[in-house]
Amino acid sequence: MIDIDGLSRRYGGAISALDDVTLHVGRGEFVFLTGPSGAGKSTLLRILIGQEVPTSGRVVVDGKDLSALKPADIQRYRRTVGFVFQDFKLVPRKTVFENVMFALRILGVPDVQQRRKTFQVLKWVGLQHRATAYPIELSGGEQQRVAIARALVNEPVLVLADEPTGNLDPDLAIEIMDLFRDMNAGGTTVLVATHDRELIRRVGRRTVALDHGRIARPA
């Protein structure tokens, strides 16, 4: 699913956020990306969602070479992948329902189907009763569940998450991880970046550690 070969990303001259990273994630895998703050986790994920381009190396996701994508292709690619961020990134002036449905709307899915699927996925994250609420009316854990619902509603082959539990307390973090485990059980490939070793220990999945932009412990 993800094939990264000799990936480097330098900012300016000296700073090397990623240095010769090679990593393979198979279809249907659940992988944690870990390492201390500043290790390069976010940089790697930004490259994987096409926000940044590698300085050198090759990144292929689901058969698509990301460095070769034109702007319109980047948007098309993003529609096939789900993203979850530490700060949730929900649109404040849209309701929970609208936030989730938006991901289907841009796919051109028929209206009735948009509503049905949105409702289904909200039910799956346990928030069907908050459908008409606005993000600001929700707790952090609830907001993140909405974001996960949005990431999953268009049935992506791959879900990427950058510190999805970074703003949540440990019990909520486990609940959120259960959602990722659940989607992975349904066949979705999952890559979660987190510096929280305790969480990783409790979930117990394949872990790739980064340190100063290098793979510290190849798996």
């Binding site: 926000q51 319109a72 948007q75 993003r78 096939t80 992948v81 404040p92 841009i106 949005r150």
Partner: peptide, 16 residues
């Protein structure tokens, strides 16, 4: 800008 960033990340077509 936040909303634009979110829509962009979710993969909304730029025309949209």
């Amino acid at each position: 800008r936040d909303e634009i960033e979110i829509m962009t990340l979710v993969g909304a077509p730029m025309a949209f």
